[in-house]
Design a protein around this nucleic acid. Structure first.
Length: 917
RNA sequence: GGGCGAUUAGCUCAGCUGGCUAGAGCACCUGCCUUACAAGCAGGGGGUCGCAGGUUCGAGUCCUGCAUCGCCCACCA
C-alpha cells in the first residue's frame, strides 16, 4: 500500500459563510445552469439515446397554483435523473394559449367583446402593449358614464389583444418555472397558437379529412349559452343543483274506452313545455299501456304530440310518464332521432327563447292558436329561469288547461337536488341546440383506442382504468369546432351556389402548401377575394378548433411532424407524458387518438400521472374556493429546493396534502447538506484509498442505497428514491459515519487510516450529492462546486454521472462514455471483511449515547472507561472497527463484558465511567 | 348505479411479491451549547394498522363483505 503524499483538495472552513444564502445562491445557480447549458440536448442523437418528455403546456390564462409546482417538479426530477444516467434528455415547454380561458380573461380585463361585424380600429392596431391598448379602448367607449357595457371590437383586434394577454401570462409561468430551477429547454418553447402549431393542427385536419375521419353535420350538440359555442363531451361536468319537480297535466286526444282522459307528467324543466314533441312511458307500464299510439295535448301551448313506448323510461321516476323536448337532455336527443319526432328548437344560441309565432310556425290544435301564440309571446326573449317562472304562472291559470280540469299545474313545485350538466368553464347549464359542427369520428374506433391505451405504460398502473373506462363510455364523436375567435382556424371554405347558400357537401380544404391559413383572410385556390360571400363564389368557415384539437398534438408539434422528417424520427414516439389525472379523458385521450389516426402509433411509452394537492380538509385545492395558495411567495420564503422537496415526497397518482411543515423539513435538509459538505471537504489528509474496515463497510451500505434508489427511479418511484437516500444521508452518513470518523480524520498517528477516512467521507458526500441532485438541485450543486467540480471535470453535479448504471436492463449502458476519478467511484472500493461492521459500529455508538443521555452528561464528555455488554456475534462484528467506536465514544478503549447482557431491544448496552476533570 | 383509489401514532406519510417486539418526520416530554450544523444532537412517551369474517403455522400485508372519504363515469323526466 502506497500512500500518495499529495494532499486532498480541501476548502478553508472559514471561507464559507456560516449560513447558506438561499435566494442569492439559487439565483447564482440558475445563471450558471444557463451558461453551462445543462438543459440543452444534442440534436444529432438517434431516437434510442433520446429521452423525450411531452411536457404539459399550461393553460396560459389559468391561475398559478401549488398543484403546478407539484407536478412540474415531478417532471424535472425525472428529467434530471435521466440526464445523469446518460440520456439525451429533450425537455420542451409549451403554452396552451388559445381557447376560452384567454378570451374570457380578455373580456373581463378590458371589458370588451368580440364582434366580427365591427371594423378594425387603426388606433388599436397601433397600440403595441397592454397599457396603450387599455387607454385606446377607454377612449373608444361611446359613453364614459356607462362603462358597464362591454365594448364591441373587431375579430382581428380581439385576437391581437388575446396575444398580448397570453404573452404576459406566459411570462408569469416562465418566471415561476425558472425560479423553481426547472431544467426546461427554453430553446424548445412553443405555443399552441404560434405559426408552427397552427400549421401542424391544420395539417392534422387535412390528414384526418384525407383518411375520412372528419365530417360536418347539423346535429343537436351540447351548447354553452354564455360562450355561445359547442362543447365536447369531455368538457362537460355535472354539478349538483337545486331544482324542482313540476307536476303538469296533459290531455289525451280521443281516449279509448276505459283509458284515462288525461295524465300528469313531472318535470324539472317546465319552461321547455312549448318545445315538447312527444310523450313516453315504459312499454310494460299498465297505467299508460292504452295510450301508446295516441296523441296528447299539452297545456298552455295546445300542440298535439305522439305518445310512444320506450324502455328508457323508468316507471319509478316521477309519475312514470314524461315529456320529450327538443332538447332537454341527451335522452331527448336519442328519442327525437329514434322516433323521428318533430324538431321544435325553442332556444336561441344565446339561451333566450326564440322569436317565433307559436300557432303559425308550430301547430296548435284548432281553436287554440291565438291562446298558444299569446302565451308563447310572453316567453320570447327571456332567459331560461325567467321563462320557467312565466311558464309556471301560465300553468297555474285554469284557462290554459288542455283538459278542462282546472289549472294544469298540480300543487306547488317540489324542490329536489339533482345533477345538472355544465360546461366545465361555464356558469350556466348546458343546452342542447341544433347547430352545424365539425366532428372527428371516434365512436367506430373504440377498439383501436383501447389497444393503444394498453400499449402505454401508465404510472401508476391503475390510471389505465380511467382511460379504459372513459373510452368504453364514449357516446359521441368528438365535436372539434368552436364558435370562438382566439384559436386555430379550421382550414375550410364552402362554395356558394347561385342563391348564395353554402354547399357543405363540397367543402374546400386548404392545400398543404397554404398552411397555416386563415380562410377568413385568404381565398381558396381557384377563387379570388372578390368572390367572397358572392353567389357562385365562396364563403369561409369562421369556426376555430377546440383547443384540445391542437394540444393533443403536442408530441407532433415538438417533433415537427410534416416539417422535419429527421426530427420526427428522433423524437417520436416520446418517452413520457407527465400530466394530472383529471385530464386523462381529454388531453391523454385525444393525444392517443391523434397519434393513432396520424401515425398509427402510441404518442409516448409512459404516462406519469400526478395527483392533486388537497387541503388539510381533504378537498381539492382550488382558486375558486379561495383555498389555493399563490406559489411564488412560498418559493421566496422557503427556497426552491425546499418546495421541490415537498413535491418530491408526493408519489405519482397519489393526492397530497398541502402541508407547509414539509417545506421546513426540506429547508432543514438543505442546511444539513451545506454543513455536512463544509465539514467533509474541510478535512485534510493524504490522497489515499479506502482501506479501513469501517470505511469499506460504510461504502458497502452506500452501494445498497444507490441500488435501491436507482431501482425506484427506474420505476418512476422517485419519492421512494428520495426516502431511501434521505434516510441514509441523515442517519447513516451524518449522524453515524461522520461521528464515528471524527477521531480518525484528525489523527496524526494513523496516516493511512486518516487518508482512508477522508476518502470515505468524500466518496460518501459525492454519492449523496448526486443521489439528491434531481430533487434539490441548488444546494447539491453548490457543495459539488467547492471541490468536486474541479476534481471530476464535471462543472455541475447535474452533468455528472449517476453513481450506478440504471437498473433497467433495456437502459443499461446509457452511462457509456462517462468516467470519474477513482475517488468518486463506488466500484473501486473493495468489500469489507465483515459485512456487519458498519451497522454494528452504529449500534455500539448508539448504546454509548444512550448511556450518556441517561446520565445527563454531554455526548462529547470523555470517558475513563467504556464497557459494552454484548453477545459473541455482536462482539465479533465490532472487532475490526473498535478504535473508531472507542474514539467516537470518547473512551481510550472498548472493553466487553459477558456474552449475555444485551437487552431485548438492543444488541449493545454501554456501561460508562466519565473521566474526572 | 358502475369503476378506481384511500383508510397505519395528534398531524403528514413509509411499510414492495404475507415472516420482527409495526416505522419515519412533524408535534410533545427529557437531557446536551459535542470545535459541520441549536434552522443542531441525543434519549423518551405515543398505534388492538377503518369494521367484520375468511385463507394460513403466521395477515397492515392475501380473499370476501361492510363503512367512511376522495376521484372518474353513468343517471338527469
Amino acid at each position: 500500500m502506497t500512500i500518495s503524499k499529495e494532499q486532498v483538495r480541501a476548502i478553508e472552513f472559514s471561507d464559507l459563510p456560516k449560513r447558506f444564502d438561499v435566494p442569492e445562491r439559487e439565483a447564482h445557480w440558475r445563471k450558471m445552469w444557463d451558461e453551462l447549458g445543462i438543459h440543452e440536448h444534442d440534436h444529432s442523437q438517434p431516437r434510442e439515446r433520446n429521452y423525450v418528455i411531452d411536457s404539459p403546456p399550461p393553460t396560459a390564462s389559468g391561475s398559478l397554483h401549488p398543484g403546478h409546482i407539484f407536478s412540474y417538479t415531478h417532471q424535472d426530477i425525472i428529467a434530471r435523473y435521466r440526464r445523469m444516467t446518460g440520456w439525451n434528455v429533450v425537455y420542451p415547454m409549451g403554452w396552451d394559449d388559445n381557447g376560452l380561458p384567454t378570451e374570457r380573461r380578455v373580456q373581463n380585463y378590458f371589458n370588451v367583446r368580440c364582434d366580427p361585424d365591427q371594423q378594425v380600429e387603426p388606433e388599436l392596431a397601433a397600440a403595441q402593449n397592454i397599457n396603450k391598448t387599455r387607454a385606446v379602448l377607454d377612449s373608444l367607449r361611446p359613453h364614459k358614464e356607462r362603462i358597464k357595457d362591454p365594448l364591441p371590437i373587431a375579430r382581428e383586434d380581439f385576437i391581437r389583444i388575446c396575444h398580448f394577454v397570453t404573452e404576459e401570462d406566459e411570462q408569469a409561468y416562465k418566471d415561476l418555472f425558472n425560479r423553481m430551477g426547472y431544467s426546461i429547454d427554453w430553446g424548445e418553447e412553443y405555443a399552441t397558437i404560434d405559426d408552427r402549431s397552427r400549421r401542424i393542427a391544420q395539417r392534422s385536419f387535412l390528414d384526418l379529412d384525407q383518411k375520412g375521419h372528419v365530417y360536418t353535420a347539423e346535429l343537436p350538440t351540447m351548447w354553452d349559452v354564455d360562450f355561445q359555442t359547442a362543447v365536447a363531451q369531455a368538457e362537460v361536468e355535472d354539478r349538483e343543483k337545486q331544482g324542482a319537480y313540476h307536476d303538469i297535466e296533459f290531455a289525451v286526444e280521443n281516449p279509448g274506452p276505459g283509458d284515462p282522459t288525461s295524465f300528469v307528467i313531472s318535470t324539472t324543466r317546465p319552461e321547455l313545455l312549448a318545445a315538447c314533441v312527444g310523450v313516453t312511458a315504459h312499454p310494460d307500464d299498465e297505467r299508460f299501456k292504452g295510450l301508446f299510439g295516441k296523441h296528447a295535448i299539452i297545456p298552455a301551448f295546445f300542440s298535439r304530440v305522439p305518445i310512444f313506448p320506450s324502455d328508457k323510461a323508468d316507471p319509478e321516476k316521477g309519475t312514470g310518464i314524461l315529456m320529450v323536448c327538443t332538447f332537454g337532455d341527451q335522452t331527448d336527443v336519442e328519442w327525437w332521432r329514434e322516433e323521428g319526432l318533430a324538431l321544435k328548437p325553442m332556444l336561441d344560441k344565446d339561451g333566450r327563447v326564440r322569436h317565433m309565432e307559436y300557432g303559425d310556425e308550430w301547430e296548435a290544435v284548432p281553436g287554440y292558436e291565438d291562446r298558444a301564440k299569446e302565451n308563447f309571446g310572453q316567453l320570447i326573449g327571456k332567459r331560461v329561469n325567467q321563462a320557467k317562472r312565466i311558464t309556471v304562472e301560465l300553468l297555474q291559470d285554469p284557462a290554459n288547461s288542455a283538459t278542462g280540469n282546472g289549472a294544469p299545474m298540480l300543487g306547488e313545485p317540489k324542490p329536489i337536488s339533482h345533477p345538472v350538466r355544465y360546461y366545465e368553464k361555464g356558469d350556466n347549464p348546458i343546452e342542447y341546440l341544433t347547430s352545424r359542427q365539425w366532428f372527428v369520428r371516434l365512436l367506430d374506433k373504440k377498439d383501436g383506442l383501447q389497444s393503444k391505451g394498453e400499449e402505454v405504460r401508465w404510472r401508476p398502473d391503475f390510471m389505465h382504468k380511467r382511460y379504459a373506462n372513459w373510452t368504453d363510455g364514449l357516446n359521441a364523436d368528438w365535436a372539434v369546432s368552436r364558435q370562438r375567435y382566439f384559436g386555430v382556424p379550421i382550414p375550410v371554405w364552402y362554395p356558394l351556389n347561385e342563391h348564395g347558400e353554402r354547399d357543405y357537401g363540397n367543402y374546400i380544404v386548404a392545400p398543404e402548401d397554404m398552411l397555416p391559413v386563415d380562410p377568413t383572410a385568404t381565398p381558396p385556390p381557384g377563387f379570388s377575394e372578390e368572390q367572397r360571400g358572392k353567389p357562385g363564389g365562396f364563403d369561409a368557415e369562421v369556426d376555430v378548433f377546440d383547443t384540445w384539437f391542437t394540444s393533443s398534438l403536442s408530441p407532433q408539434i415538438v417533433a415537427r411532424w410534416g416539417d422535419e422528417d429527421d426530427r420526427m424520427a428522433q423524437l417520436f414516439p416520446m418517452d413520457i407524458r407527465p400530466q394530472a389525472h383529471d385530464i386523462i379523458r381529454t388531453w391523454a385521450f385525444y393525444t392517443i387518438a391523434k397519434a393513432m389516426l396520424h401515425q398509427d402509433d402510441i404518442p409516448w411509452r409512459n404516462a406519469a400521472i400526478s395527483g392533486f394537492i388537497i387541503d388539510p380538509d381533504r378537498k381539492k385545492m382550488s382558486k375558486s374556493k379561495g383555498t389555493a395558495v399563490t406559489p411564488l411567495p412560498l418559493v421566496e420564503r422557503y427556497g426552491a429546493d425546499a418546495v421541490r422537496y415537498w413535491s418530491s415526497n408526493g408519489r405519482l397518482g397519489m393526492d397530497m396534502a398541502y402541508d407547509e411543515s414539509v417545506f421546513k423539513i426540506g429547508a432543514k435538509l438543505v442546511t444539513k447538506l451545506y454543513n455536512a459538505g463544509k465539514f467533509v471537504l474541510s478535512q485534510t489528509g493524504s490522497q489515499g484509498e479506502i482501506t479501513n474496515e469501517l470505511d469499506k463497510a460504510f461504502v458497502a451500505e452506500l452501494k445498497e442505497v444507490v441500488r435501491r434508489a436507482t431501482a425506484a427511479f427506474d420505476e418512476y418511484e422517485f419519492a421512494i428514491a428520495l426516502q431511501v437516500t434521505e434516510e441514509f444521508f441523515w442517519s447513516g452518513f451524518t449522524d453515524n459515519y461522520i461521528e464515528l470518523l471524527k477521531g480518525r480524520t484528525r489523527s496524526d498517528d494513523d496516516m493511512e487510516g486518516r487518508a482512508s477516512a477522508v476518502a470515505g467521507l468524500r466518496l460518501g458526500l459525492s454519492v449523496m450529492l448526486r443521489l439528491l441532485a434531481p430533487f434539490i438541485p441548488t444546494i447539491t450543486d453548490e457543495v459539488w462546486s467547492w471541490v468536486f467540480a474541479d476534481e471530476t471535470d464535471f462543472e455541475s453535479v447535474h452533468m455528472a454521472p449517476w453513481p450506478a448504471k440504471s437498473a433497467n436492463p433495456t437502459e443499461a449502458g446509457m452511462l457509456d462514455g462517462y468516467s470519474l476519478p477513482n475517488a468518486h467511484s463506488l466500484a473501486a472500493v473493495p468489500d469489507p471483511e465483515n459485512g456487519n461492521s458498519f451497522t454494528a459500529a452504529c449500534e455500539a455508538i448508539a448504546a454509548v449515547r444512550k448511556a450518556k443521555s441517561e446520565a445527563g452528561i454531554s455526548l462529547g464528555k470523555p470517558l475513563s472507561s467504556l464497557v459494552l455488554l454484548a453477545d459473541e456475534q455482536s462482539r465479533a462484528d465490532l472487532t475490526l472497527v473498535l478504535p473508531d467506536v472507542a474514539a467516537a465514544g470518547g473512551a481510550p478503549e472498548v472493553q466487553f463484558n459477558g456474552a449475555a447482557g444485551a437487552s431485548a431491544d438492543a444488541r449493545f448496552v454501554a456501561e460508562i465511567e466519565p473521566l474526572e476533570e
